[in-house]
Design a protein around this nucleic acid. Structure first.
Lengths: 292, 292
DNA sequence: CGTATATAAGAAAATTATTTTCATGATTAG
DNA sequence: CTAATCATGAAAATAATTTTCTTATATACG
């Protein structure tokens, strides 16, 4: 924890009644305090503005504004929530003030990306990249939240000219899976790894002879077991139903790595296509001059 | 480098004479600026205080003090060096070994979330949450990558029973925007803030009397200026076309905060709906026993 | 037990900082 | 060449902060 907050916590002994109130308020949500005026903070603590100024002086700041700026700098350093470098997940519950939600969300997402990265198996990633680069056709499967991830990957792959589909409709997924063959790739995404529609689609693809890849939250699951190469994003503690928020970020993180890996291995091929797709969007947009 | 400094450096084109002087002074030693008063900074740049305030507003801060606090938070980040904990963005180039790509991607995504969080304005977020909670109808606009973000938000809002649409088709976006009215909310997402289709849709919605919200990468943009309440994700260095990867993660981070904020403020309303939507998916899935 | 003194804290005044409004000159489009 | 827009500074208005002055309370000492 930063020196200022640390001091506020451990030097309470030397504070007076009112000063203690201030210290507590600041500790409770420093992120809010830095956006407050002196009057606002004073009111929230049932204290006069003069007391706030004095308090800042006691802490050896030049005044309240000085305190705010220094505090802002400090809380920026530490990842919200538990100390930096750690990676524990925060639960998010009812009626929390927004500042807490923001802190918790940041902690969760950062932890999620860190954990996912450390779970990564480079060799496996490399194989997946190779498969995707050489695939005749790529099918992406995912329902609900995972279909968002699938769509995202789809957009990227299309831009580098990979022949690829990402149906949101589970019937179409199966239909498409049926028509895959050896040399094609099926890529299934699911938080739980137990989504029946996605499992069916990947199973069908495997049966058709395609190479199968799964992307699920860490832990054994039907989908991961089924896939030739399973990839994992970090899973959250506890039964947070809303855990899929961090999980989706982690899955996109992996998608980004895969995509960048693909572009990097076949730079000469893919970069021109990327550029071209970008330029063409611009071109046709300008051509019609803003009206559709 | 932090998004604010980055913007100061790269948006000089859009600044006026005096604004450029200010930008340069801030870039020269941001650490000094955060301890200055508005008058002092103005004098050092041979500029009037009024110009400084205006400059801060152009950058979408609430005023000079707000600018100082946000800047303080950011420069605290950036002197932490490139290893984790710091937040400099890594470029991703050809033929990099996978391990480097993974490291760079992690650094980018972590930095992006951190920077975005420090740019966040809690008051604004709160207003947006309030608007969304009380909206009769919510329209989400976004093209390409941003449509993925819009879709993601859409899925979440639907689950808590918010009346909401997220057309990917720009004609439909306009059509829908035309039928909005006071009390409705239009929420436009764009990395650059200059996507014509998205600007048109938001403009149309505004004209119809809806409250307008934008989510763009940090910096002044047409879309952000147009919106009643602009929200920002952090922007990346240099011309990385592929900067939209980190940006999308950051935007989803904000979406998650908004959504969680909504659920938290109207816990009693929304949680049962969330639970119900979850249970119903399970129920109907089990009912048909895996076959469709 | 009472008085003097120190201390904490607020009220109000003074100061300082910031923002807004208004006026002016420059620049651009017609 | 004129009108309109824009950038800018001066000054007024507002808001924030700090200082000063006052009061109440507690503590030590006679």
């Amino acid at each position: 924890m930063s020196p200022i907050l640390h001091a506020l916590e451990h030097e309470q002994a030397s504070f007076s009644q009112m000063e203690r109130r201030l210290a507590e308020r600041v500790l409770a949500s420093p992120g809010e305090v830095i956006h407050m005026g002196i009057t606002e903070l004073a009111e929230q603590c049932g204290v006069s503005p003069a007391t706030v100024t004095r308090f800042c002086k006691v802490l050896h700041f030049k005044g309240f504004p000085d305190f705010k700026v220094k505090l802002a700098a400090e809380i920026a350093h530490s990842d919200a929530g538990p100390q930096d470098g750690g990676s524990s997940y925060q639960d998010i519950v009812a009626g929390n003030p927004l500042s807490l939600i923001v802190e918790a969300m940041q902690a969760n997402h950062l932890a999620s990306i860190r954990d996912t990265t450390s779970l990564l198996d480079l060799e496996r990633l490399q194989s997946v990249i190779a498969l995707l680069c050489n695939a005749r056709r790529v099918d992406l499967y995912g329902m609900a939240t995972s279909s968002i991830v699938a769509q995202d990957f789809y957009q990227k792959l299309v831009r580098i000219g990979v022949n690829c589909t990402a149906f949101a409709d589970s019937h179409m997924q199966i239909t498409s899976a049926s028509s895959l063959a050896k040399g094609d790739v099926a890529f299934a995404i699911s938080y739980s790894g137990e989504t029946p529609e996605t499992i069916d689609a990947l199973g069908c693809a495997k049966h058709s002879g395609a190479s199968t890849i799964s992307l699920t939250s860490y832990g054994s699951s039907t989908l991961a077991t089924l896939a030739d190469i399973p990839l994992f994003s970090s899973s959250l503690e506890q039964g947070m139903r809303r855990g899929d928020m961090a999980s989706r970020i982690a899955q996109l993180h992996i998608i980004d790595i895969l995509f960048t890996g693909m572009v990097s291995t076949r730079f000469g091929d893919f970069i021109p296509k990327l550029e071209q797709s970008y330029l063409n969007v611009q071109h046709y947009r300008n051509k019609r001059g803003g009206q559709s």
